[in-house]
Each structure stands twice: as structure tokens, then as C-alpha cells.
Design a protein around this nucleic acid. Structure first.
Length: 500
RNA sequence: GGGCCUGUAGCUCAGCCAGGUAGAGCGAUCGGCUCUUAACCGAUCGGCCGGGGGUUCGAAUCCCCUCAGGCCCGCCA
């Protein structure tokens, strides 16, 4: 059974599946795994609901490397109250969230979205905050017991926000008279915060169980950081039982995604591929496929270079076999869970990504490529699919392709000096070419061998001549297919030019 | 100090949860035309399933121990 079905079968009917993120930086493929895991389980469990919580009231912790120094003044303020880095969004949180929300929409994820700053402002946390503060000694004991961390008597499970400087970092609570906590801030201000509002927030270790309780969360995918012993999962489960008297949700722990050779993806280190960058390279189904085929607890080494092509090929193969009914049950399920909305009635025809890597470098427009590719396998109804993939290949070539796959067909004959043998080779090749009206990648390829044999020139050299006169490079893509992809007239003219 | 994950063919991995004759893709080799760098088809080669012990009629699979690698927590989230 597929992992999503296994997890789904453990949940009650109509489960509420919750996940979330603190939008403090670019949201990458690793974070995508969290919501996609939730989405898979939601699909596996009938009539489940998926909830995505953006922790927009969480304060900015520090000036991350991707921020400029002016953000120093906002450290300690809720993300929702910090200006947008680019100026186009309402605030800091929205700046990072907006492209991500667009990405998950394109991935076919249907979920409701909540922002913690509105949840606090609207009083959703009022009851939970009260219960937690009243039980603060017990909560403190749970936290210190499971983390080994010392919490003194003045500790409260509540972080007020200074009404004067707007920051949460340096505030100490001095009293509690329901519903107000009195505090003094490092800025010198003394005030009180209404725990029924967004005057402050619960610390994460308490916020999390509070959500579970008040929303009735049945299942939550969580990163391995939370799951480690003494982590927030351990304290959260204890707190929800002790303070709220309800059981914790069913956890699904997922592993990190590593960027091959660069370590774990992380927004703060910049080692990451953003969700929208993934979609710029490959179809959304393929992003889903990567995560659906891998069990959440296995880590993924993602390599956006040449191995990306293997992933795309694998998807194409699985897709073709799906419609041929040749897949085992799990792989079949992987394919289904990779779809954006429903299973296409007919198998989509996809021009191989590797093939397009050449075409994109030969032709200017997608239409030209389309004409060259139109064959038995590709019908007009697949044009949109084709265009999307062409765009993806272009992006991949610009951003992630290794240098040796890149080339450009020279419109003018490059300056090359060919010796008599080489010119003789091309002359013979051209004559043979003109005499044959059935060109195929194989025949063009084989012709190199026979002509080279006749002329008495080495095979390696003879292949090289083509790359020199067409690309001004010593090497290039597989020759037979490559020559077929070129415009026929253009190829003949270039060869004529060599002969002259 | 603690936790999780991984270790199966040259490489990437599936199979483990519900024990029953070790699998796929890639690579390699050979053939398909004298076949190149990244093509296609067919075939072949290839593994005491990290090591040790236990449970069992039977273990890659379950249990214990051990070795190796990776990551995370013990600030914050």
C-alpha cells in the first residue's frame, strides 16, 4: 500500500490535517514537502480537510543574509507588521507567502489558509491562552522536564508585545490578572497585554498544542526538527494532554530534502530551490511525483543538474505505463497522487525533455520546435503541454544545466580550417545526403561511418567536423538526431558552403 | 547527552509496516551496420541484503547488540 493510504487509514473519518510555516524567508522545496505530504494524506482519506497556517505573528528573529541591514530595526516585530522587502506586498510575511501560495495552487493543493495574526486578533486563542497561563507551573515543568531547560518562577507561557516599541523579544511579565498580563519591556515601557487579542502570542511550544486543541487537528506532518527527543512535538503532546485534556494529532514525520552536494535546504543559508523555481523547470505533476514516490521519512537528495532529466524521464515512463496498465499498485498510486486534478482520460503525449534540450538550443520559437516535433506521438491537443515543457527546458538550461550540454547553432559559418580529407568527407556526405530522400537519425548517423570509411578518415574526426561547422565547438549532441532536428535547407546550405 | 533516518547489483534505489525462491532503472558486456559524446531495440553479466546474535519450519523483512554515514534536538521556531 502507498504510504499516503497507510497514513490515511489511521485517521478518523473527515480528518482535519494541519500544517504550517513561519514565512520568515523564501519558501523552498523542503517546505513544499510538508504541505504535499498533508495533501497526499488528505487525498487518501475521504473528505479530509487540509489547513495551512502561516505564522504571521511570529517575530523576525534576526537579519537574515538575504535581508539588508535596514531590517535590524524590525527584529522582534511580528512578520505581519514588517514592511515588504520588495514593496509590492502588504507586508513581510505576505512577500514570502504569496509566491508560495501560488505554487501550491498550481500543484493542485486545495487547502484553507489561516494567518496567526488574525487568529490572535479575532480571539481564537483566548481560551487556550488563559488555560495555559493558569497552568503555567505545570507547563513549565513539562518543558523543563523534556528539554532539560531551566525555567524560573517568573516564566509565563505568553509573549506580550510591547505596545510602545512593537517588539516581542525583550519583554518580561510581571503580573497576570485575567485577561491582562502586566509587563515591562527592555525599551523601558511598562504596559499590559490583553491575552484575548494580538497583544502578544504564545511561545511556539504552547502555540502548537493550543492549535491542535482549538481547531481539533487530527493529523499533522512535521519536520524532523520538531520530532527529535525533547523537541516541540514531545512538549506539545504532553501539554495538550495535561492542559487541554485531549489527545495529540497523528504525526507524520518527514525528512529534509538536500540539495545534492550542498547540504540540507534552508532558507537562511540560501541553499534552496524555491517552490516557484521547481515549477519553472518542470511540470507540477513532476514535482508531486518526486515527493509522492518517496516516503516522507526518507531524505531526498535532489540534484537539479543532469539527474533532473532522469526524474522527468522516469515520470514520462511511469505515465506511459500507467495507461498500458503495466504498473504495480504502489507506482500506480504514485502516478495518481501526482496528478493535479483528476487522471487525464487519455495519456498526455510529452515530447522527451532531453529531446527538447536540443531543440530549444536550435530554434527560436516554440512553434518552430513544435513543427519539428510533430510526429506520430504528439497531437495538436498536446500543444500547451509542449509549450510548458519548452519553457521549463529553457529555464533549466539557464539555471541548472551543466555547461557541456549547451551549444548554439551558428547562423553564419564559423571560421574553421579544414584539410583536404575533411572537405572530401563533407563533399561525399553531401552527395549521399542529396541522393537519399528518407532521412532518419539512424541513417544520418550511419552515413557518417560509411563515408568516413570510404574517404579514409577517422570516425572521431568525421563527427567532429559537423560540430565545428555548425556549432563552432569540438563536441556536441548525438549527431544523427541532432542533424534531423536542424532545418533541412539550412543543413544542406551549410554543407554546400564547406564544399565551396 | 538524546532522537530520527540510511546501509540491498558498479551507481541510484524498490522490496521491510502484514516473514515464504533477491527486484527495477542506469552503467558495463554482447548482438542489432565497421556505432561518437547524452539515441533506440534485444540479451547477458552482476548481490553470504553493513556485521554478529536471537525468534521461527522459514528472516533483506521481526527482536537485541554492533559498525559506518547523514541529519536533527538540547536557543528560536
Amino acid at each position: 500500500m502507498h504510504w499516503a493510504d497507510v497514513e490515511g487509514s489511521k485517521l478518523p473519518p473527515e480528518p482535519l490535517i494541519a500544517t504550517g510555516i513561519t514565512p520568515s524567508g523564501p519558501i523552498h522545496l523542503g517546505s513544499l514537502r510538508e504541505i504535499l505530504t498533508g495533501d497526499a494524506v488528505k487525498r487518501a482519506s475521504e473528505s479530509g480537510e487540509l489547513l495551512y497556517i502561516a505564522d504571521s505573528i511570529d517575530p523576525l528573529r534576526k537579519v537574515y543574509p538575504f535581508l539588508d541591514d535596514s531590517y535590524e530595526q524590525y527584529v522582534g516585530m511580528p512578520l505581519h507588521d514588517i514592511p515588504c522587502p520588495c514593496g509590492d506586498h502588504d507586508n513581510y510575511a505576505e512577500h514570502y507567502l504569496a509566491p508560495f501560495l501560488e505554487t501550491i495552487r498550481e500543484l493542485g493543493i486545495r487547502c484553507s489558509i489561516k494567518y496567526t495574526h488574525t487568529m490572535y486578533a479575532e480571539g481564537d486563542y483566548a481560551e487556550a491562552a488563559k488555560l495555559l497561563i493558569e497552568a503555567r507551573e505545570e507547563v513549565a515543568e513539562i518543558i523543563s522536564k523534556t528539554t532539560g531547560r531551566e525555567l524560573d518562577d517568573s516564566w509565563y507561557p505568553y509573549n506580550p508585545r510591547c505596545s510602545d516599541c512593537g517588539k516581542m523579544g525583550d519583554v518580561e511579565i510581571t503580573s497576570f490578572e485575567d485577561p491582562y498580563v502586566g509587563y515591562t519591556c527592555g525599551c523601558g515601557h511598562e504596559g499590559k497585554a490583553d491575552i484575548r487579542t494580538d497583544d502578544g502570542k504564545l511561545p511556539w511550544r504552547c502555540d502548537w498544542p493550543a492549535r491542535w486543541w482549538m481547531l481539533g487537528v487530527d493529523c499533522e506532518p512535521l519536520g524532523k526538527d520538531h520530532a527529535a527527543a525533547g523537541g516541540s512535538w514531545d512538549t506539545g503532546t504532553e501539554i495538550i494532554k495535561a492542559v487541554f485534556g485531549t489527545p495529540p494529532p497523528h504525526p507524520i514525520v518527514y525528512e529534509w530534502i538536500q540539495l545534492k552536494g550542498k547540504g540540507a535546504m534552508s532558507s537562511s543559508t540560501g541553499v534552496a530551490i524555491k517552490g516557484e523555481e521547481m515549477l519553472a523547470m518542470v511540470e507540477p505533476e513532476i514535482v508531486r511525483f518526486l515527493l509522492m514516490k518517496t516516503k516522507p521519512h526518507s531524505h531526498i537528495d535532489f540534484d537539479p543538474g543532469l539527474p533532473l532529466l532522469d526524474l522527468v524521464d522516469e515520470y514520462d515512463t511511469v505515465e506511459a505505463r500507467y495507461y498500458d496498465g503495466e504498473l504495480d499498485q504502489d507506482t500506480q498510486r504514485v502516478y495518481e497522487l501526482s496528478q493535479i486534478q483528476g487522471i487525464p482520460e487519455y495519456p498526455p503525449s510529452r515530447v522527451p525533455y532531453r529531446h527538447l534540450v536540443n531543440l530549444v538550443q536550435i530554434y527560436e520559437s516554440a512553434d518552430e520546435m513544435w513543427e519539428v516535433s510533430m510526429g506520430d506521438e504528439v497531437g495538436p491537443e498536446d500543444y500547451d503541454l509542449f509549450k510548458t515543457r519548452v519553457e521549463g527546458v529553457k529555464y533549466w538550461l539557464d539555471e541548472h544545466a551543466p555547461p557541456f550540454v549547451k551549444f548554439s547553432v551558428k547562423k553564419e559559418m564559423p571560421e574553421v580550417s579544414l584539410n583536404d580529407k575533411e572537405i572530401e568527407f563533407i563533399t561525399r556526405y553531401l552527395t549521399e545526403l542529396k541522393g537519399s530522400d528518407t532521412w532518419s537519425p539512424d541513417s544520418l548517423h550511419a552515413l557518417v561511418h560509411t563515408v568516413a570509411e570510404d574517404v579514409g578518415i577517422s570516425k572521431g574526426k568525421s563527427f567532429g567536423i559537423f560540430y565545428r561547422i555548425l556549432l563552432d565547438q569540438k563536441r556536441g549532441p548525438k549527431l544523427g538526431r541532432f542533424l534531423m532536428q536542424l532545418d533541412r535547407e539550412f543543413l544542406l546550405e551549410r554543407l554546400e558552403e564547406v564544399v565551396e
